[in-house]
Design a protein around this nucleic acid. Sequence first.
DNA 1: TTGTAGGCGTTATCAT
DNA 2: ATGATAACGCCTACAA
Lengths: 331, 331
Amino acid sequence: MVAELAAGRRPTIIDVAKRAGVSKSLASRALRGDAGVSTSSRDLVLDAAQELGYRPNSAARSLVRGVSGLVGVVLNQLDNQHHTGIVQGVQGRAKELNARVIIGNGAQNPEELQRQIDTMIELRVDGLVIVSSWVPRQVLERAGSEVPTVVLTHLADPPAEVDTIASDDVYGAQLAVEHLIQAGHQRIAYLSRSASATSQARIDGVVLALETAQLPCTILQVDAGEDINLQELSASGVDAVLCNNDLTAAEVIRLAHEQQVQVPGQLAVIGYDNTALARLLYPSLTSIDQPQVNMGRRAVDAIAERTAGRTEALRELYTPQLVVRSSTAQP
Amino acid sequence: MVAELAAGRRPTIIDVAKRAGVSKSLASRALRGDAGVSTSSRDLVLDAAQELGYRPNSAARSLVRGVSGLVGVVLNQLDNQHHTGIVQGVQGRAKELNARVIIGNGAQNPEELQRQIDTMIELRVDGLVIVSSWVPRQVLERAGSEVPTVVLTHLADPPAEVDTIASDDVYGAQLAVEHLIQAGHQRIAYLSRSASATSQARIDGVVLALETAQLPCTILQVDAGEDINLQELSASGVDAVLCNNDLTAAEVIRLAHEQQVQVPGQLAVIGYDNTALARLLYPSLTSIDQPQVNMGRRAVDAIAERTAGRTEALRELYTPQLVVRSSTAQP
DNA sequence: TTGTAGGCGTTATCAT
DNA sequence: ATGATAACGCCTACAA
């Protein structure tokens, strides 16, 4: 019964047509639910397809139709809850528009990111969503000139070829710092474990807010692999720290526990992205929220607009929000 | 200069051949680096391709070659660190074998999981890696009969059509319980937030270990959305809990903090999967480690073996390991 | 070393 | 309502 599939050969639409006793064009129409097919032949075709275990070959379909019905998402890293919300949004909107979503994992590696983008383009995705600020500008330019591309992170100077949908990282960092100032903190630090454009924008926000308040400013960059030194922080009098994301904040809270530093009493901590982790930690984490799901949905719409003919680049900026939890004291 | 790309038409190999002044077959050979092409015409072709911004169309290539060079990975959920390690392994091995990896997100939803699997099969991936125990058996059977498929989770009764590579969940749970018993615990509970086959296997292990030790057994299932009730646990005298994964354990530790329950003093906690989260929590989490990266790598090899002709199903079981940290007392 | 020609599985146009 | 037939972009014998 599976004999027909032997030798690795999968049934084609011709096999289906033969078995149903119709032409392949009719089979094609019936399988796609086209109008103008008699009920009887439709049933014949559908039954034959079922019996043979027929699956459309999307390579062939994509080739002749010129569109793949695919939206590609390339992520900077898989285990980043921030990305999860975005993918959820992309997937939700794509489903409504009858498109399918495939994901590529850039593994925090510019080379791999480029490989993934190449793969997507060669697969002729109808649109490309990039969630990373580590993609070389040149790669973005080329991608954007070949397929509707939208970047979902802050970019210092986004190429004209791509759409961007981001949340205002400068403002978000300002929000966080202002919250700390209102709570009475005077020595505020920014701690980052990544040197991306995103992090740079947040640094700008921190500097801006602290300058306005005429307070001293401490910027710390601790590369992945290196240990965070809380002692040093405390010694320099820092009593509040904004982290580049929730994960980094989790590290800080963990170290504070270990070293008997009270959070928020001796050290207030704020994360960024407001991921599920923020609610999971103890004390729960004050964080900056971005509308990830909506941003993902908008990305798909941006692609659809491009396909429909829009030529100017989209520059959309969402306003982040402060979510106060227990890792900072109420003002 | 981009004029040639106008009207949405992308350059094809014929455009490249024309511009290089050679036949399309020669262009094809040159582009793929085939032997038997003169240096001069190779350069001509490569230059032309570069100038035109040529990209191979993998639909066309896949159609004529019968293989796509793609490995599809379908994940139960994106924000699960356990999956991340597996994908890393798959991607690493695939790269060595010159294949590309695309990922589908099942969003913890059997229907969506099936959609993703369908998408992959229609894309004619050369192999399918499924990391979910929520896929209906029938879907696995069909997938396995159409493309080399390997499932990377525990399956109660795996279909003959698919390969399985899993770690021994029964044994892992036993390990955890035995560790707790040795540390002097008498009232041990298992807490799950999911009713998968995976969780069931772990329950089996817990029951086995506790029966052997002639100790009482408490199995708790708290569905997503519902709150975990630590009070109730304590009231019933439970002084140690094994969770279905690190995420659930994180919730428990958080509740313990809130309710002033000492971990591990009053309540010992063990997670499962030994994800990055385990090291991030305070107290750091004792957990059961699975060789995720290796399992991912083996999955790709299993696919390659199938492609090379193997017909018997692969049943590979890895032995998990206990990683003791601070959320349980040393015996 | 290079070119010609046929076909992969599907859709779409044009007849019938 | 149905059926031939011509693409789609690429690879690969086979011929030259």
